[in-house]
């Protein structure tokens, strides 16, 4: 199954959240891989603590593979090559966890050529052959990478593909996320251009709210009652807004609470971070675990 991670704006925590989802999924026993299609700024190596590929690889990553310059994109086995000690021991029952980084220096593509598209179809098809879950991290906004992914998946009708739209729980982000999917030149528009059925494609899109401040969270414990009431009103307004923009609960796959660790250190959160050093919140890990289950659970993706 191919999962595409998109967001309208930068700073939504798209890469770090999708990275944590694949990490949790592999702990749950699936063979998973993470493919960096954020060609402009390939930084996903940092999330998985691969210093060699912190800003992309020099050994032929996704960008050079798509251009036909290397026969196979550089592949990094996280369980073997991560610099974080906690990640270098594969727990019993865990599946493969593989990273396909972008290229250092990266750069975008000028146009969508037939050769490029074929190469992309080949890549998706090969990865789907090997992995239970293939997470493709696309750049923010209406990017070339998203175009390419839509064109390629249109040619792979037999391969399951799903789209995750990451957005923060704010007015601007809700409107932007809705526009990215339903707006002009949005995901559904461009998908239809490449031969996707818009209604069917819409059924394969879900939203993930990031950095959400829950009403009952410990962070809000010190607030005055008037402040809490005001926050409550804001939250209700946002819920109404999101429902109007078709980004409401029914189309939401899950939400990730605000966690200082995610803000300051954009990395995988291990159980150790919660239990031993206690720097991360248990709720954050639970949210990732939940997302990792739902992302492959057909019940969560039933047509609306």
């Amino acid at each position: 199954m191919l999962i595409f991670a998109i967001s309208d704006k930068g700073g939504t925590g798209r890469s770090v959240t999708s990275g944590n989802i694949v990490y949790r999924r592999s702990l749950q026993g699936n063979d998973v891989c993470y493919v960096d299609f954020d060609f402009g700024s390939p930084t996903v190596g940092a999330i998985f603590s691969i210093s060699e590929a912190e800003r992309g690889t020099r050994r032929g990553g996704t960008h050079r593979y798509l251009q036909g310059e290397v026969a196979e994109p550089h592949r990094i086995d996280i369980w073997a090559e991560s610099d974080r000690e906690g990640l270098r021991v594969k727990p019993p029952g865990a599946g493969q966890l593989v990273l396909y980084p972008g290229d250092e220096g990266g750069g975008e593509f000028p146009t969508l050529t037939e050769e490029l598209l074929r190469q992309c179809v080949r890549l998706f098809s090969r990865l789907d052959e090997e992995f239970d879950l293939v997470m493709v991290d696309l750049s923010a906004g209406r990017s070339f990478a998203a175009h390419l992914a839509l064109a390629a998946t249109a040619r792979l009708p037999g391969v399951h593909s799903r789209w995750l739209v990451f957005h923060r729980w704010t007015r601007q982000h809700i409107i932007a996320a809705a526009g990215l999917v339903n707006g002009e030149r949005g995901l559904l528009d461009v998908g239809a251009e490449h031969g996707h059925d818009p209604a069917e494609l819409a059924d394969r899109v879900r939203f993930v709210r990031t950095a959400v401040l829950e009403q009952d969270s410990a962070e809000l414990a010190g607030l005055r009652p008037t402040q809490l009431a005001w926050l409550n009103d804001c939250d209700r307004e946002l819920r109404e807004l999101s429902a109007r923009h078709k980004v409401g609960r029914t189309r939401m796959l899950g939400k990730v609470p605000l966690d200082p660790v995610l803000q300051w250190r954009e990395q995988l959160i291990s159980d150790e971070d919660v239990l031993a050093s206690q720097i991360a919140n248990a709720g954050t890990v639970a949210a990732f675990d939940d997302l990792a289950k739902k992302v492959v659970d057909d019940n969560a993706w039933e047509g609306l």
Binding site: S125, E129, G158
Partner: peptide, 22 residues
């Protein structure tokens, strides 16, 4: 690999393999 790709990409296959394997 290209030869394997050509066979695997056929529309006559349903792509629902019973398990994933490299």
């Amino acid at each position: 690999a290209r030869f394997v790709d050509v066979v695997q990409s056929s529309a006559r296959l349903d792509r629902r393999a019973p398990f994933r394997m490299a």
